[in-house]
Design a protein around this nucleic acid. Structure first.
Length: 108
DNA sequence: TGGTTGACTAAGT
DNA sequence: CACTTAGCCAACC
């Protein structure tokens, strides 16, 4: 069997939960950390299912630092507000100083 | 069982 | 430099 794929979603959740406050990461980084660097979409899909779970999905953005997933949150700027309240500077759903607030799961 | 979908990414036009 | 196309792979219907 391929345990990597069996718990893919669960692994994604684990990684997302480990994201420290004031930091963000990208779908591709998570996918890469899980060994499926080509499957960034699956990470996004996992987030889609993460509703109802204790997952800080607002800390996961695309590689441009753009809050692509904001549409899945309630309001239009909830995701941005959550990040800003954690110390992440966000302007127009775009993370500023992305490189500085970026957190790579492999660094932990 | 099989085809469609998507919170991505990289490469091409 | 902005938009389009293609690859990716598990979940969903």
């Amino acid at each position: 069997m391929r345990p990597e794929t069996l718990n893919f979603f669960d692994k994604v959740y684990e990684v997302v939960r480990q994201i420290p406050e004031g930091k963000v990461t990208s779908y591709g980084a998570i996918a890469n950390y899980l060994g499926a660097k080509r499957s960034a979409r699956l990470v996004g899909y996992a987030m889609n299912v993460s509703h109802g779970k204790d997952i800080p999905a607002h800390r996961v953005v695309n590689r441009n630092g753009l809050l692509t997933g904001k549409h899945h949150f309630e309001g239009t700027n909830l995701m941005q507000q959550l990040l800003e309240s954690e110390g992440v500077e966000v302007i127009d759903h775009q993370i500023q100083n992305f490189k500085q607030v970026f957190w790579d799961p492999a660094e932990l």
